[in-house]
């Protein structure tokens, strides 16, 4: 039996525009999604904001209904079999909402243990274990309103595990966390996967998916653009090198000439306090560096380095640089 099976799934949201004359408008959030996740797999769903990641997670965790197609989790239909399915899944949505701030961390987990019908003799043992797993034991009896964002996110994870779910849905669990808190949380996610949990993780952090996931699906504008392992995904850009150039005052003309260069696959530019960082994907990048620098003449080139392509580079190649900036 598969952990998750999705067939031709679609979801349309209706919205209205105008105040007096209201016009209904349908927005397609997901279109014809097909996907299979095996038991014990740590599966990543990658995509820009608004791609449909959260919508898919909410459908799979029985919060939303699909508009078309069907989805099964642990062999149970997410629309019809909610009564049997809900005790066996856990969900963690990113952000600080979804907790009772006036209660302590322990009270929050205890309450959800009750709602998930966890027998008291089990919850008495499990709650301290979960608090220990996420490193909140010492602060467990303090009110959540005094927790940092990272602590709240860890509490979310502990809450999502209180029923010992077979499948755990994590929707952008490290969003807004500082690097250390995010790293600690990723360690917890890996540990849960080692313990046999199937994990369905959404993220738009490429390094996170690269580090954690055995397979990844890239979703864009409601459709799946690719499903593969992160290493296979990276082979899309295996023939490329990435040249990073730090400079100042890059003119639009220079940028356009760079993009039009026959040995350039793509260029992304980030601004940092008046300086620009150009990421140029190029076959045989090292040999082309003198040409790139010549094109950027007058742009005060300060540093040039080359590196191997990452998952992010593959993502940019697949979806275009707009996806990265969204």
């Amino acid at each position: 039996m598969t952990a998750i099976k999705i067939e031709n799934l679609g979801r349309i949201f209706s919205t209205t525009t105008g105040t007096i004359r209201r016009t209904r408008k349908d927005i397609t959030a997901l279109e014809n999604i097909n996907l299979v996740v095996e038991p014990g797999e740590l599966f990543g769903l990658l995509g820009p904001n608004g791609a449909g990641k959260t919508t898919l997670t909410r459908i799979l965790s029985t919060v939303l209904l699909p508009s078309s197609g069907r989805a099964e989790v642990l062999g149970m239909d997410v629309v019809r079999d909610t009564k049997k399915l809900r005790p066996r899944i856990g969900m963690v949505f990113g952000g600080e909402r979804g907790l009772y701030w006036r209660l302590s961390g322990r009270d929050n987990i205890q309450y959800f243990a009750d709602l998930y019908l966890v027998p008291p003799e089990v919850s008495r043992k499990r709650i301290p274990e979960l608090l220990d797993l996420v490193g909140l034991t010492e602060r467990a009896d303090e009110r959540v309103e005094g927790y940092s964002r990272g602590m709240k996110q860890k509490l979310h994870i502990a809450r999502g595990l209180v029923n010992d779910p077979d499948v755990l849905f994590l929707d952008e669990p490290t969003i807004g966390l500082d690097p250390i808190a995010a790293r600690e949380l990723r360690a917890v996610i890996l540990e849960m996967n080692k313990r046999g949990k199937t994990i369905f993780l959404t993220s738009h952090y490429m390094y996170e998916v690269d580090e954690l996931c055995q397979r990844v699906a890239v979703v864009n504008k409601g459709k799946i653009a690719l499903i593969d392992t992160p290493s296979a995904f990276k082979t899309m850009v295996a023939d490329l090198e990435v040249v990073e150039i730090e400079c100042r005052e890059v003119s639009p003309e220079a940028l356009a000439r760079l993009r039009a260069h026959p040995r350039v696959a793509s260029v992304t530019m980030e601004n940092h306090e008046g300086a620009q960082s150009l990421q140029i994907q190029s076959p045989g990048g090292v040999e082309s560096i003198p040409e790139f620098v010549r094109i950027l003449e007058g742009s005060q080139v300060q540093k040039v380095i080359t590196r191997q392509p990452t998952l992010e580079d593959a993502y940019v190649k697949l979806l275009g640089r707009e996806a990265l900036n969204s």
Binding site: R58, S61, T62, V63, K83, R86, P87, M91, F93, G95, R97, G98, L99, Y100, W101, F112, D114, L115, Y116, L117, N163
Partner: peptide, 18 residues
């Protein structure tokens, strides 16, 4: 507002009992 409504409704306990 607290973002817990969907968690309660998606829990195995029927919402009226909660």
């Amino acid at each position: 507002r607290g973002g817990t409504l969907s968690m309660l409704i998606a829990s195995p306990t029927p919402f009226p009992i909660i």
